[in-house]
Design a protein around this nucleic acid. Structure first.
Lengths: 189, 189
DNA sequence: AGCATAAATAATAA
DNA sequence: TTATTATTTATGCT
């Protein structure tokens, strides 16, 4: 899915990222291949534990202080990060992951405790909108596909749905529209 | 992430699912533990290959016929499926996954070909443009060598050619010009 | 039996 | 970083 990114388009102002660089060894003697290998394995091991980037980020933030957002983990896995940062991050991730695996050995419950998340956060039940609500939402959407937080709150109150549910509805609606129109524009007749 | 679902809430009308049942062996001698183990591993192996449920479903639909939607794969992994269905699905998934891993060994490209390639899709017949069509296309090309999707669609309709054919004609025409002039006239990026 | 889409997750923009 | 979009997964429905 993700072939090698071309080692180009690195404008002067930007730092080169591990995923863009070519050789096995970067400046300052950093072993790029090792980092690449670790990043790939890190993802597989994370998934094997059934953990999300968000969970890893939050757990690390708790133990190591900030600078471990979901985005940060994502960027590490994609190697969209400078060799220097990667070098600094790698041992932290390695240590944490090994520990997580250790707890997992003792049982799923221990892992979840270690990660710190709520032990059994269940997926939210899928909401069923009434046809009337859909109609109202659509008419709002036609007028404004990108409502402000204030407007979302008002709609949620009017329709008597959870605010978050309404917010997500708009996200997904925009997505659907985009996909649909793309098909209309580009699809072969 | 997914602890054991409670073995309750099985209303009389519904079939019990593998993830809900308790013992190691179901009726008809189906080895439930084996299925549970396989489902878990299947997911990890799928993710290790970097494949989505959708990709697996589509690939299987191509080779095995329908009944392998993304939902079906999802439900297998979550064991939200009757023992009988699981029993039937398991060997198919096992075989396919092993083959996918085999191709992956030979390189990412081979895997993608295996996953995405329609096996018996024949090469499209070479299109013959009429001299008149060539003339029209060239005049369009002189005006704009990089038409938008919308413009391509319109030209295709006007000339009564397949949209994809027109799109490719422009690609090829640009390529030819580029090779000839050796100057990158177009904003490729 | 699987489509449509809500919810969750990953990736990117700001 | 946080906010938002894009992608993937999961599930209500019939």
């Amino acid at each position: 899915k993700t072939p090698l990114p071309p080692a180009v388009n690195i404008s002067c102002g930007d730092m080169a990222k591990v995923g863009q660089l070519i050789g096995s060894t970067g400046e300052e003697g950093i072993n790029l291949d090792e980092i690449r290998e670790f990043a790939k394995n890190f993802k597989i091991r994370r998934l094997s534990l059934g953990l999300t980037q968000t969970q890893v980020g939050q757990a690390l933030t708790a133990t190591e202080g900030p600078a471990y957002s979901q985005s940060a983990i994502c960027r590490f896995e994609k190697l969209d990060i400078t060799p220097k940062s990667a070098q600094k991050l790698k041992p932290v991730l390695e240590k944490w992951l090994a520990e997580a695996e250790h707890w997992n050995q003792k049982g799923q419950q221990n892992l979840m405790e270690f990660v710190g998340g709520e032990p059994s956060k269940k997926r939210k039940r899928r909401t069923s909108f009434t046809p009337q609500a859909i109609e109202v939402l659509n008419s709002y959407f036609d007028k404004n596909a990108l409502p402000t937080g204030q407007e979302i709150t008002e709609m949620a109150r009017e329709l008597n749905y959870d605010r978050e549910v309404v917010r997500v509805w708009f996200c997904n609606r925009r997505q659907t529209l985009k996909n649909t129109s793309k098909i209309n524009v580009f699809q072969v007749q």
